[in-house]
Design a protein around this nucleic acid. Sequence first.
DNA 1: CTGAAAGCGCTTACAG
DNA 2: CTGAAAGCGCTTACAG
Lengths: 320, 320
Amino acid sequence: MARESGVSRTTVSYVLNGKTGVTIPESTRQRVRDAAARLGYTPSAAARTLRSGRSDLVLCVLPDWTIGPVIDTLLDHLATRLADRGLSVLVHQSRGPRPLSDLWRAVTPRVVLGLAPFAEDDERAMRQAGIQVVGSALDADAQPGTFSVPQTRIGQLQVEHLAERGHRVVAYAAPSDDRLAAFADRRLAGAVLGCARLGLPEPQVEAVALDVASAVAAVRSWRSGTEPVTAVAAYNDEVALAVLAGLRAEGLRTPEDVAVIGVDDIPAARLAAPALTTIWQAIDAQARYLADAVLAALDDTVEPPAQPDDVFHVIARDST
Amino acid sequence: MARESGVSRTTVSYVLNGKTGVTIPESTRQRVRDAAARLGYTPSAAARTLRSGRSDLVLCVLPDWTIGPVIDTLLDHLATRLADRGLSVLVHQSRGPRPLSDLWRAVTPRVVLGLAPFAEDDERAMRQAGIQVVGSALDADAQPGTFSVPQTRIGQLQVEHLAERGHRVVAYAAPSDDRLAAFADRRLAGAVLGCARLGLPEPQVEAVALDVASAVAAVRSWRSGTEPVTAVAAYNDEVALAVLAGLRAEGLRTPEDVAVIGVDDIPAARLAAPALTTIWQAIDAQARYLADAVLAALDDTVEPPAQPDDVFHVIARDST
DNA sequence: CTGAAAGCGCTTACAG
DNA sequence: CTGAAAGCGCTTACAG
């Protein structure tokens, strides 16, 4: 490569890395770039990483539970933003028995981005290895430079919407998958908070699996009290669809007898009978925030971004 | 590390890599392993890759369209199988404008696994760089060592099920997203083949977006002919749910007036009204096949696996 | 069986 | 402004 363009390896390296502070004539730069293009030359990533101690990889670790339909869009946006900086985004599902350390040691990433909170010693080990870490928190009281989605806000919004529709006795449909517990607890806490603020009784909680039988059991419990439930806030759209099915099986009408609100706005939500009211997330704002957080981690001179607010909105349909 | 255990770097390397052919006393091996554990020593991945020309990474490139709910399970299984060989699975969504070559050059993977077909020159470049390539094909007539899912089989099964239920005039609900065209075409081809074999007229095709209006338009078209359609095979469950919503909006009963069958068995399928009949995929068999294909690519002495057959099954519910 | 040494392909002070 | 040289941390023939 150096011989092809008639300059030294040093110069090639400087030109290709856009090294500032050295003055290399444009003619030389062009010659180097031409030669690189002609030879299809790309520096060896392994050698660069070994020598400079840092790679151009951003490792994104997903939690072991399904994170929902939002994640694809988030990663998409992130990859596009980081591509401008020559960084590639790689995703790993942290399922399975392998320790996280095996993974980041094998990848040598510049940044590790966790979409679920890290164990403390994992995070310490990564930082010690010179890797920037952008963690996640489940709620708004997060550290700067940490990605967080205010889960409690979701539950609160659901209850506020139901109260606006005149409901006083509200239930919460929790997911049956234990891996979602951390999320579900926060959303439920938001619903509880919402009820308290509005002077409503505390929501009655039932776990609802994604089948009709489970939903029927929950519906019976909700309707059997002295004050029957008239509205259900569900953990997400899938749980809400199960509740809808349970109500249907029990011969109850939605929204006349019992109203239902979900979260996510999956395609099936607007296709359900009745069309499902749900909470929608401003993914673009979230994605921008996430990308900014990573960019700030890469460059000390960049301010960590502020949490976007107002990312959630109710999409009112026929189920409430 | 070498000093700590009192042996040479050579010996350390041999022990840690389980080098066969050298006879190192168990006592020495143990001493090395102990020292490694004590120091928390892990070889630098970058240095290993630079020196040996191969990393312990498997890069899985996803297509730019949503691949469906099956993919998580598939990757899970793959990661677990490959972890036994010390390999880490990394996923990249190939959306965005970056060329594929940027990616694999930055990662230096041992194997690149494509869940969509590669461009020919991409594949050639990777092989030339010493990377094993496991490609994907959309159908069963694939090369050995290539992952393929017999899409036509899906359409065929759908039609066979509808015919068993006594339907003669069948429609096909195609997705409106162009990125899915390659898949949709194969599934449709299967439906056409199925009709031909059973002596039914060719299916009437309409694209159906994931909203009620689009589905209504399709339903009207299907019902307006001299021989009104009585059964619809949909590209997947989401499209099928849209068709269900369209039929409902038009005041048609399912399955009495028009039967519907989907593909995937997403959670919303069994929760729909009526519960959606669909095609289910034996993911375990597919996952095993995929892992075997990657393992075979890694090791010339291993036979490439045979396509599993019989991976699809009809789950009959109330919509047919 | 073990050690000294070369070299993978870069980047980056340091001389010129 | 450009070149010769060191060195990142390994693996692997090759001598001993």
